[in-house]
């Protein structure tokens, strides 16, 4: 079994959207779930969020940022190429209820991971406010798509080349003083998710973060993806990847994600953009 790439589209420097034939995943997928992909023989198994899916046509979409070896090799593939393995959908779907006003905060490629949640929340009747941030103008992704589902879209860039100058956390801090926000979903680099959780903690606004620990199997078998949430060990691949941001121990997540830095440094093909 292999999984044909049907189309690719560059979204930003180092960021590509892939449409991949994966009928089983497409049929069962819900917002917030991911797949584990292998890109080459002897390759690593890497987790990637399903950003869109069409059950009838049997495809899924993945938005991938080239940060290291596997994602860089994948970036070199195009329509007609095949992925040896795509398995899923894995993880628990995003909780989608009628909450009222939900702020969906995406940092960097995290915007791609947050996008399906925004779609699902809007479909459930929520008023979605999207805050999408990036280091610089060219790295802002999915702005048009977000405008289709969100009543308000706030773009921030670290260098001020587009939208508001500053971090998504600054924009969120202002937003929650301006209007009532009933729930926040934040996806992005660890410092950003930690920052978001701190912004919403004083008012105790329910805040969901999507964690990205290193994974191997993605089915609960290896325990490599374990995270500490509310003092308890949880496996992000089966109990998550979304958890209560106010309960997550971000220090441990950050430490554990650095486990293979030296190994990756030897294998890197492109400069890393992971902590943008």
């Amino acid at each position: 079994m292999s999984f044909a790439i049907l189309a690719t589209e560059p979204l930003a420097p180092q960021v590509t959207r892939f449409r991949v034939s994966a009928p089983r995943v497409a049929r069962s997928h819900r917002a917030g779930q991911f797949v584990i992909v292998r890109v080459e023989a002897n390759g690593e198994r890497i987790p990637l969020t399903v950003s869109d899916a069409d059950a009838d046509a049997g495809w899924i979409e993945l938005i991938v940022q080239a940060v290291g070896h596997t994602t860089s090799v994948m970036a070199g593939l195009g329509a007609g190429d095949e992925l040896p393995d795509v398995v899923g959908p894995l993880g628990r779907p995003t909780d989608v209820e009628a909450y009222g006003t939900v702020a969906v905060v995406g940092g960097g490629v995290g915007t791609a991971i947050a996008y399906p949640a925004a779609v699902a929340l809007a479909a459930e009747g929520n008023d979605v406010v999207a805050i999408i941030g990036a280091r610089t103008k060219e790295l802002v992704i999915l702005e048009d798509e977000m405008r289709q589902v969100a009543g308000q879209v706030i773009v921030t860039t670290d260098d001020g080349t587009k939208g508001r100058h500053g971090f998504v956390t600054d924009a969120l801090a202002d937003l929650i003083t301006e209007r009532t926000i009933d729930r926040v979903i934040a996806v992005g680099p660890i410092p950003m998710m930690r920052g978001v959780a701190e912004v919403t903690r004083p008012q105790a606004i329910p805040t969901v973060v999507s964690l990205n620990p290193i994974m191997v199997d993605g089915t609960g078998m290896c325990g490599g993806c374990r995270v500490l949430v509310g003092g308890e060990t949880r496996f992000a691949c089966v109990d998550g990847p979304e958890f209560d941001g106010h309960q997550v121990d971000f220090d441990i997540l950050d430490l554990r994600n650095r486990a293979y830095l030296e190994f990756e440094a030897c294998h890197r093909q492109e400069p890393s953009d992971a902590h943008a």
Binding site: E40, N42, G43, E44, R45, H69, T70, V216, D217, M221, C222, G223, G224, R226, L228, T233, I252, L255, R256, R258, A259, H267
Partner: peptide
């Protein structure tokens, strides 16, 4: 949760399934 603490499943999976001991393995 320290780096360097593995379940046997993860350690053995990296080695056996993902062949991490072979030089051309990406894992």
């Amino acid at each position: 949760h320290l780096i360097g603490v593995f379940s046997a499943n993860e350690f053995l999976t990296r080695l056996n399934l993902m062949k991490a001991y072979e030089p051309d393995s990406e894992t």
